[in-house]
């Protein structure tokens, strides 16, 4: 009951925050110097066309009115306005580009979580072994290297020096995209049993996915390792082994769950942040996803697209934060029960 109340409260706050975010982004997007209508139509467009476009985008109205119209259209019709670049409704564009990015984030996120946690657990379990040293060094470099640097190095190594992976796009030329079901090529091709497309789509995902995952992976490995190593020396672990509880069951049942709490409260945010890091990574490998769309919107001052993409990302990010709070409250009774008391 209290948990439900807690979640509702968090959701209400999240909506407030998203409103704030939309205002912030709206203001940022409107202080762009220069006339967006003129930029969209080019220098040689006739004056009346520009005037028309400005009317169409309500650019002739004061900014609070523009915001009011935007909110009204969004809430009543789910309408985010027209993209100046693609000349299509922004929500359509987002719908089209989102699955590709989601696919990339999922693959990258799985790789990040599995490898990061595994490395952390193994190096805590075998402290001062070679795995531990390897993880330490990897973590230092993983955190210090921007994802675009990883990507450029990967492209050089696995695209050119030892060409085993494709460097551009979502699919190789000559391979037809699978039937649109989810929009995610790997899943759609699996569903339709098209192995060749599946394999090709997967190969295209590997490099950007790993490059994006490196930072979060390093962080997850580091946090998991230190949290687990910390707990292993504590009395509650010694006590259970003093009572002859098998090491394996201490490890699997107690230690693992307890040690993963800090990782779990960071990792989903790192995964959600992949949408953001994807802004650059997708642009580098020309991967047609939402992040590349957002990047080109930003670079081309495509007002409605900027606002649309950022609101979507903000919503995802905020929901993930709430999700983390719920998971952590579920895992750690101290969070759940002490909050209730106050």
């Amino acid at each position: 009951m209290n948990m439900v109340f807690f979640i509702l409260r968090r959701l209400a706050l999240a909506i407030l925050v998203l409103f704030g975010l939309s205002i912030l982004i709206f203001i940022i997007a409107r202080v762009i110097p220069g006339d967006p209508a003129r930029m969209a139509l080019g220098p040689r467009a006739p004056e009346y066309a520009i005037e028309n476009l400005r009317k169409q985008m309500y650019l002739d109205k004061p900014i609070y009115e523009q915001y009011y119209i935007w909110v009204k259209n969004f809430l009543t019709k789910g309408d985010l306005g027209i993209s100046l670049l693609t000349r299509r409704p922004v929500q359509e564009d987002i719908k089209e580009f989102f699955p590709a990015t989601l696919e990339l984030v999922i693959v990258s996120g799985i790789f990040m979580a599995v490898t990061g946690i595994l490395l952390g657990v193994v190096s805590a379990r075998y402290r001062e072994s070679w795995v531990d040293s390897f993880t330490r060094v990897l973590a230092y470099f993983g955190i210090a290297t921007p994802s675009f640097v990883w990507l450029v190095l990967f492209i050089l190594l696995f695209g050119y020096v030892w060409p085993i992976l494709p460097t551009v796009g979502r699919l190789s030329r000559g391979i037809t995209p699978p039937l649109h079901i989810t929009g995610m090529f790997t899943i759609d091709s699996l569903l339709t049993g098209n192995w060749r497309t599946f394999w090709d789509a997967l190969l295209h995902l590997i490099m950007p996915a790993i490059a994006l995952a490196m930072g979060g992976l390093s962080q997850a490995a580091r946090i998991t390792r230190s949290s687990m190593a910390d707990h292993m020396d504590k009395d509650y672990v010694t006590l259970l082994s003093a009572f002859g509880v098998p090491n394996r069951s201490i490890f699997m049942k107690y230690l693992l769950k307890f040690s993963l709490i800090p990782t779990i409260s960071i990792l989903p945010l790192d995964i959600a942040a992949l949408f953001a890091n994807g802004f650059i990574a997708e642009t580098v490998v020309n991967y047609p996803g939402l992040s590349r769309y957002g990047m080109s919107a930003i670079l081309n001052k495509d007002l409605n697209a900027i606002v649309g993409v950022i609101i979507v990302l903000g919503a995802i990010y905020t929901l993930v934060t709430i999700l983390i709070d719920i998971i952590v409250a579920y895992l750690d009774p101290r969070v759940r029960l002490i909050r209730r008391a106050t």
Binding site: D235, L239, A242, Y254, K257
Partner: peptide, 15 residues
């Protein structure tokens, strides 16, 4: 069997 010094540290807090 053994009783440890600090009862707070002897039990897993989340179980």
């Amino acid at each position: 069997s053994m009783i440890f010094q600090d009862p707070t540290a002897s039990l897993f807090p989340i179980f």
